[in-house]
Simulated scan of single mutants.
Amino acid sequence: MKFSRQTTLWSQATVTGVGVHSGLPVSLTLGPAPVDAGFIFVRTGLDGPDREVQANAKSVIATAFATVIGDSEGPLVSTAEHVLAALRGMGVDNATIEVDGPEVPIMDGSASAFVAAIDQAGIVEQAARRRFIQVLKPIQVAIGDSFGELRPNSSGFRAEIEINFANPAIGRQNYIIDLNPQSFRRDIARARTFGCMNDVAQLWSAGFALGASFENSVVFDETRLLNSEGLRYSDECVRHKALDAVGDLALAGLPLLATFRSVRGGHKLNHAVLSALIADRSAWKIVEAEPVATARRPRVAAEIASGMLGGMIAPAFGPDVS
């Protein structure tokens, strides 16, 4: 692994955009957190005191069109998956995620703005060894014609994603990624959320997806892509599903040593597989990274994001299952 010790952010970085459903302005600030803290959402802008929720599988209260984090008082923040994917994908273990609205900002429909924010804040190693959840035996879940599983993989995390849409403009796509900061940044961080125009119209009429637009979503009609700029990857849709899976599985609380396979899946299936793993205590164990041979000084990420971080990131606004 790139780091044998846990990591956090060196400083804070803020992005500002709109909520995909409300269409209202929202700001998100990433910041440092102590050893073993994991990812902590802090909801500000409330009438009462700020609320904090640790991002884990038990804090998920909805998965219909996005991953929603909450507690006994109700929902805290929606569309958590993309910022969680950026943190996990870039190798951050502990961070605070402060949001002043009910949704993570939509940005450009991908995780790229959050990667830029992580670059701006910098990554620093901490004193404690990095810990992992090592999957020991296969865990499988089927929901209708969707299927997901976690299998042992002692070398790291791999995602094997298959989608199969009736819409011929999307169709069947497969993608495999062995996750590390380089592959995350290069191969899936820029993949945008996607959907079909008839789904968007239905959500608009119901008062949802008010912040969705061609600036933050890849949109298809019955036969073709409607975005004039085209796709960022020829298989951008399945890559975005891989991005979502990385974010949803970040709710394990620790990096997974496992291979995740998903067929016609989405947020609901991702959460169901993770929940099934956690419920079976014989299926996993916590392990620590091996110490490096020579001590290293804390390392701050060298790349700094340039220019404005504002813009717009969205959950899939169509049906969760492909």
Results as ranks from 00 to 15, higher is better:
residue 1 M to Y: 08
residue 4 S to F: 14
residue 4 S to I: 08
residue 8 T to M: 14
residue 8 T to H: 08
residue 9 L to A: 09
residue 12 Q to F: 04
residue 19 G to P: 00
residue 20 V to Y: 01
residue 25 P to T: 00
residue 26 V to R: 00
residue 31 G to E: 13
residue 31 G to H: 07
residue 33 A to Q: 07
residue 38 G to V: 05
residue 38 G to D: 13
residue 41 F to L: 08
residue 42 V to Y: 13
residue 46 L to R: 11
residue 50 D to W: 05
residue 50 D to H: 08
residue 51 R to W: 13
residue 53 V to A: 07
residue 55 A to L: 11
residue 58 K to I: 02
residue 59 S to R: 00
residue 61 I to N: 04
residue 61 I to A: 09
residue 61 I to W: 12
residue 63 T to V: 14
residue 64 A to K: 04
residue 67 T to V: 06
residue 68 V to A: 05
residue 74 G to Y: 12
residue 74 G to C: 10
residue 76 L to S: 01
residue 82 H to I: 06
residue 82 H to Q: 13
residue 82 H to F: 10
residue 83 V to Q: 06
residue 90 M to W: 04
residue 92 V to C: 12
residue 94 N to P: 02
residue 96 T to L: 15
residue 96 T to D: 14
residue 96 T to N: 11
residue 96 T to A: 10
residue 96 T to G: 11
residue 106 I to C: 14
residue 110 S to I: 03
residue 117 A to N: 01
residue 117 A to I: 01
residue 118 I to W: 02
residue 120 Q to G: 05
residue 123 I to P: 01
residue 124 V to M: 11
residue 128 A to S: 09
residue 129 R to D: 10
residue 132 F to K: 02
residue 135 V to H: 02
residue 135 V to F: 05
residue 135 V to P: 03
residue 135 V to G: 01
residue 136 L to P: 01
residue 143 I to T: 00
residue 145 D to M: 12
residue 147 F to H: 15
residue 151 R to N: 11
residue 152 P to Q: 12
residue 161 I to N: 13
residue 162 E to M: 14
residue 167 N to E: 15
residue 170 I to N: 07
residue 170 I to F: 07
residue 173 Q to F: 06
residue 174 N to A: 10
residue 176 I to G: 05
residue 177 I to W: 03
residue 181 P to D: 08
residue 184 F to W: 06
residue 186 R to V: 09
residue 188 I to W: 07
residue 188 I to R: 01
residue 189 A to D: 09
residue 190 R to Q: 12
residue 190 R to W: 03
residue 190 R to Y: 04
residue 194 F to N: 10
residue 197 M to H: 01
residue 198 N to C: 09
residue 202 Q to A: 15
residue 205 S to A: 15
residue 206 A to T: 07
residue 210 L to Y: 04
residue 216 N to G: 09
residue 217 S to H: 00
residue 221 D to Y: 07
residue 222 E to W: 00
residue 223 T to V: 12
residue 226 L to T: 01
residue 230 G to S: 04
residue 230 G to I: 09
residue 237 C to H: 01
residue 238 V to K: 06
residue 239 R to P: 03
residue 246 V to C: 07
residue 249 L to K: 02
residue 255 P to D: 14
residue 258 A to T: 05
residue 264 R to I: 04
residue 269 L to C: 05
residue 270 N to L: 03
residue 275 S to G: 04
residue 275 S to I: 07
residue 278 I to V: 14
residue 279 A to R: 13
residue 283 A to R: 05
residue 284 W to N: 02
residue 288 E to Y: 00
residue 289 A to W: 11
residue 291 P to S: 13
residue 292 V to Y: 12
residue 295 A to Y: 14
residue 299 R to G: 07
residue 303 E to G: 04
residue 303 E to Y: 00
residue 305 A to T: 00
residue 308 M to I: 02
residue 311 G to R: 03
residue 311 G to A: 10
residue 312 M to D: 05
residue 313 I to P: 01
residue 313 I to R: 03
residue 317 F to K: 00
residue 318 G to F: 07
residue 320 D to L: 05
residue 322 S to A: 14
